[in-house]
């Protein structure tokens, strides 16, 4: 709860800044559009001195994530990062690749391009270790977001902004137990992602019953639906399904219905389909780790550090979740999900 207050304070900051910058909106919008033009614009702006609030900060900040192309979640992170760039007048370059090797190369490219700040998600921290070391060696401050919080400090990053997967998983397990579930399957849609395994482990700890993991393919949703259905048919005592990504919740809800099972579905991450399912009562709840906030705050905190040497969190990760989407607050959030910011 203490952290929540913290978050509110942090949230208020960019709003105040945005209010400041909006007075000179014409120059702001031009610099916000710059990142689309790529490296040429970036280097040109790099020589500009960090300007005072009125004209925007003009920092070059690279946001390099592991989000797969076409992933709904990461498009929200990107939207957040770009909005922060626009609000603060920074040049934000967002790039992503799900392959750790390629992500490392993207970081290297950003470093050699001379960005002033680096915001990175670390799904596979060890693969990025060298690249991040290069960045810190070059004097570029690094903030990690979303995944890789436990390695963040070790790699020399300033702080980590994200959801602690174990904490969130624990909360989900507790919520499922509250709903009466005892035998739960945890659907993993991306093999080898440490964060997803940690979530399922957290669910196990929080539930206090049995949790079994089920691996499915995120790019083949009808196949995933059949697999979940198979599991429900094979073991009728399953009374809960936890999914780890928005789109999989819709698939699991359909599988539960088709299998004639009474299992409750709870999910991580929110999108417009999930909010509709929560309204219909087909999904019990969704954990929102507020990806928009991760993108936004990554850029925002970086800007605060570059301009005012501020850091946040006192060496502990800044948590953006779990916040729950339930039938009570779903209406408001669904409007925002349609707009692509939740």
């Amino acid at each position: 709860m203490k952290k929540n207050k913290f978050l509110v304070a942090v949230l208020a900051l960019p709003l105040a800044l945005a209010a400041c910058t909006s007075t000179s909106s014409s120059s702001d919008s031009s610099s916000a559009a710059a990142p689309a033009e790529g490296s040429a614009a970036a280097t040109a702006a790099a020589s500009a001195a960090p300007a005072a609030g009125g004209e925007g900060y003009g920092y070059n900040i690279a946001v390099v994530t592991h989000g797969g192309a076409g992933d709904a979640f990461w498009s929200v992170v990107k939207a957040g990062a770009e909005k922060a760039g626009a609000d603060l007048g920074d040049n934000v370059q967002y790039q992503s690749d799900g392959d750790p090797q390629k992500q490392a190369q993207l970081i290297d490219a950003a470093v050699s391009q001379g960005v002033q700040g680096l915001v990175v998600s670390m799904a596979n921290p060890d693969a990025l270790k060298d690249s991040i070391a290069k960045a810190t060696a070059a004097g570029i401050p690094v903030i990690t977001i979303n995944a890789g919080g436990d390695k963040s400090k070790e790699f020399g990053a300033m702080n980590h902004i994200g959801q602690d997967e174990a904490v969130a998983g624990n909360a989900v397990g507790a919520k499922m137990a509250e709903a009466g579930a005892k035998n739960v399957i945890c659907v993993i849609q991306e093999a080898g992602n440490v964060a997803l395994e940690t979530r399922c482990q957290g669910v196990t700890d929080g539930l206090g019953g049995t949790v079994e993991n089920l691996q499915v393919d995120n790019n083949d949703l009808t196949g995933a639906q059949a697999t979940i259905k198979s599991k429900l048919q094979a073991d009728p005592s399953i009374d809960g399904v936890v999914t780890l990504g928005g789109q999989m919740a819709a698939v699991a809800a359909a599988a539960v219905e088709e299998a004639g099972s009474s299992a409750k579905v709870g999910t991580f991450d929110v999108n417009s389909d999930v909010t509709a399912l929560i309204k219909d009562g087909k999904v019990l709840f969704a954990v929102d780790q507020q990806p928009y906030l991760q993108g936004y705050m990554g850029v925002d905190l970086m800007t605060l550090y570059l301009s005012n040497a501020n850091t946040l969190g006192g060496g502990l990760p800044v948590l953006t979740g779990p916040s729950f989407v339930t039938p009570e607050n779903v209406d408001q959030i669904s409007e925002l999900a349609v707009a692509g910011t939740r």
Binding site: G68, G70, D217, N218, N219, D220, L221, T222, Q247, A250
Partner: peptide
């Protein structure tokens, strides 16, 4: 079939199949 069945479509659908 998939778009109608799921009621939605992801931009990454079908990769790798």
């Amino acid at each position: 079939t998939e778009a109608l069945r799921l009621g939605s479509m992801q931009a990454n659908a079908g990769f790798g199949r």
